[in-house]
Write a protein that binds this DNA or RNA. Structure first.
Lengths: 183, 183
DNA sequence: CAGTGAAGCGGAGGAAGTCTCCGCTTGGAT
DNA sequence: ATCCAAGCGGAGACTTCCTCCGCTTCACTG
């Protein structure tokens, strides 16, 4: 790739990050182009679809996921506290951008979504936590990772759309934790 | 209201119902107007916003809710079976139209949403079921109706966006039921 | 350094959707 | 039959998406 093209690409990602943060993932792409100082044609060559741009932005988050898992697993207390801490991290990661939770979770089951690899990272992280719980013998039988991811994605989507505070989200996560753990 | 205006209004609701069913709640409003044989101005006078039209359509569903509660509560088996049957009814009601689940549930906490009265009906229905469970002594302490509504709304939203079959939704409802009931 | 070809750029503009404004039509009261 | 307010329709302004293509710039080569 030519040096100027590389510069533009990076600048677009940077600006898109800011615009999406301000106005949600549905913000006009022409504005991203405008604020990056390039023509719309340039944006669409680098990122043929809106999702391609989403994907590029989320790529940076992905690297942080394992750190969030570790942070949650280091929580004081028993398995329940660790699990809830992880659930909160999970929802927090999904609600970084307005509209992200629904899009990421929707691509969970969809083979050909460009977001697939991203959400797979979240799913893998969740699976590692569930596996840990299973090893400790506190997980109910028959709890499926994909189902838990979707439940958490649903909670994140509700939190996103209703602008819920963490203290409003917590009781929902409590219900899921109760549903997932032995008593 | 003049008789011709009344006719147009009813026709618009009828056509909008069909269009939204075919193409989702985001279908172009001008197409609704076109298929109803009126100008866009007429549509926008009767329904100033897209939501106003959604509201008018959903008004007809509302009348059926209590029948769905009764149907679920008549399910063979114990409390758990009844509760799960109701959860399935709830999700089914919310996913009648593509995009409806997220919109309805988002308006749960929002005082001034035009969909408010509609979703309140769902919330009331859910509360009546939870109260029944509490009376039977099978409900966990501290389970809040709003949280359960949001969880179910989240599941419905995921089901809607990922086009899940009932058999894919069921395990998520199982988790919620486990989280809501004593064991 | 000049020349060259391909890679890349920008923005005009078409398509689709939203929503308003205003001149014309029509229902229904008198 | 007359009247006028309620109601209608559609032209068109505005926004956003996305493409196409003529022009510019990079980077390589002799």
């Amino acid at each position: 790739m030519r040096a100027d093209a590389q510069r533009n690409r990076e600048r677009l990602i940077e600006v898109a990050h800011a615009v999406f943060k301000e106005r949600g993932l549905d913000a006009p792409l022409d504005e991203v182009a405008r604020r990056a100082g390039v023509g719309p044609g340039t944006l669409y060559r680098h990122f043929p679809t809106r999702e391609a741009l989403h994907e590029a932005i989320m790529a940076t988050w992905i690297e942080e996921v394992s750190a969030h898992v570790e942070k949650a697993m280091a929580t004081e207390g028993g398995c329940r506290e660790k699990l809830l801490a992880w659930f909160e991290e999970y929802v927090g990661l999904l609600t970084r951008h307005q509209g992200a939770a629904a899009k990421i979770t929707a691509s969970l089951g969809c083979e050909d979504s460009p977001l697939r690899t991203k959400c797979q990272t979240y799913a893998d992280a969740n699976e590692s936590v569930l596996t840990e719980m299973a090893d400790q013998g506190v997980l109910r039988e028959g709890v499926d990772n994909l189902d838990v991811c979707r439940l958490l994605g649903g909670v994140a989507t509700m939190a996103d759309q209703s602008s819920l505070e963490p203290r409003d989200v917590r009781p929902m996560l409590d219900v899921i934790a109760n549903g997932v753990l032995k008593n």
